[in-house]
């Protein structure tokens, strides 16, 4: 196998053309209008629903309101980054533990950032985050801090120190159009995505 490495690289080096240059990268496409307005508009285009919260203290009620409005059970699992930081006493919600392996489970999570360009939220693996929860939940509620909504994808990398194992740009719920090019939601991951735009950073 070491031979294959040398053989492949040798051939690539033979055809290398050091003189072929690349101009510096142009800036990402400019976004017209206010970043937050654009973010909300694009979330709508991605069929995500949006609510606002002035602070973290308002998030539990907002989550309860959403689940009730969707006629979903008043049960919730929390991402590690939010555990112990929210008070659900005033809501009818029951908090559960464990991976959302079964059907019909709702997860409330924080995230690294939002991206206005396409109404995207960005989740990164790390000590306060378990990507499996977001992927297995059938209903996903994401808290996005208004102070961390970037104009474009490139800006998000500047919020990171190093490169986590997984940096996931997620836009809308999981879907498939494999059968007759018609969109069906909830292919493997969340069937519905709800964003709570919060003015306080978790």
């Amino acid at each position: 196998m070491a031979d294959s490495r040398e053989q492949i690289l040798g051939r690539l080096r033979r055809f290398a053309r050091p003189e072929v240059d690349l101009a510096p990268a142009p800036p990402p496409p400019a976004q017209a209008g206010a970043i937050l307005d654009l973010f909300v508009e694009r979330l709508g285009a991605a069929r995500a629903t949006v609510d606002r919260a002035a602070g973290l203290a308002e998030v539990p009620a907002a989550a309860a309101r959403y689940l009730a409005g969707q006629n979903l059970p008043a049960r919730l699992r929390l991402a590690p980054g939010l555990a112990g930081r929210l008070d659900f006493a005033a809501t009818p919600l029951t908090l559960e533990d464990g991976l959302p392996e079964a059907d019909g489970i709702a997860v409330l999570t924080d995230c690294l950032a939002g991206v206005a360009e396409t109404g995207t939220f960005v989740a990164a693996s790390g000590p306060g985050s378990d990507p499996r929860l977001n992927l297995l939940a059938e209903t996903l509620i994401v808290v996005v801090a208004t102070g961390r909504v970037a104009a474009s994808y490139e800006d998000v990398w500047r919020m990171l120190d190093g490169t986590p194992r997984l940096v996931g740009f997620v836009t809308g719920a999981s879907r498939t159009a494999d059968i007759e090019q018609t969109i069906e939601w909830g292919a493997h991951g969340p069937r519905r995505l709800h964003v709570i735009l919060c003015d306080e950073t978790p």
Binding site: G126, T171, S174
Partner: peptide
């Protein structure tokens, strides 16, 4: 819907 950057194995502090 998903654009994912996978970089290396699980880190020591990852859950």
């Amino acid at each position: 819907a998903y654009v994912s950057f996978f970089t290396g194995p699980k880190r020591a502090a990852d859950l």
